[in-house]
Amino acid sequence: MFEARITQGAVLKKLVEALKELVTEGNFDVSSTGLQLQAMDSSHVCLVSLALREDGFEHFRCDRNMAMGIHFQNLSKILKCAGNEDTITLKAEDNADQLTLMFESSNQDRISDFDLKLMSIESEHLGIPDQEYSAEIKMPSSEYQRIVRDLTSIGDTVLISATKEGIKFSTSGDVGTANVTLRHNTTPEKPEEQTIIDLKEPVALTFALRYLNNFAKATPLAPVVKLSLTKDLPIVVEYQIGELGAVKFYLAPKIDD
């Protein structure tokens, strides 16, 4: 049997809100080490990789590895019924065709349970090598959200270039052009307000803004976002979810003809 209890149920709500428009369905792969998900969008341009550690939960038990096929819009409908302060418990019997979600209010005076029908999903996993990136940039997630939102109103694609001067986001469209440059800045006292650029070599890549903007739906999950760039490789946009784990978005670059 599988059982996972999380006191901060709001994290699960935010997580599903961040994913549900990008990927319609995917397998929650549960094992004794935690819960993982790898899912691509329908056009195979971007990929979501979620890893939640077993020790990040208040309680975690998984007797047998299982792939639970989730329809994210449906899971979202159920999670909307959970209060922001609720503790959420996920439960499933071995080889079950449903996932039970139990919501408990913080003062334990309201308990509800919902069963989500599980799907059988042929998952296509991609092997993503661990590797060194040419540039790794940590910045406030709200800053990333603002930049991609602003640029989406100007153009369709963004050229992201990392140099020793900083990281520059450039776009152009019918109304004109836009450039936003962030410099390495460790002046703010709070680490989550700093911009840290770790540059091994200059790199410049072009991406579709629509997806980068969609990744910013994960902003409520973390104060900091990390962007990793290497020539001719997908960008990684990564949000650490406290001690629980991380969600990473991969987006394939635009390629010159």
């Binding site: 341009v45 092997g127 635009k254 003809d257």
Partner: peptide, 14 residues
């Protein structure tokens, strides 16, 4: 003009 790459061009299918 740049074309949108697909993930399979960068990562191997398992």
């Amino acid at each position: 003009k740049a074309n949108q790459g697909r993930l399979e061009s960068f990562f191997t299918a398992l």
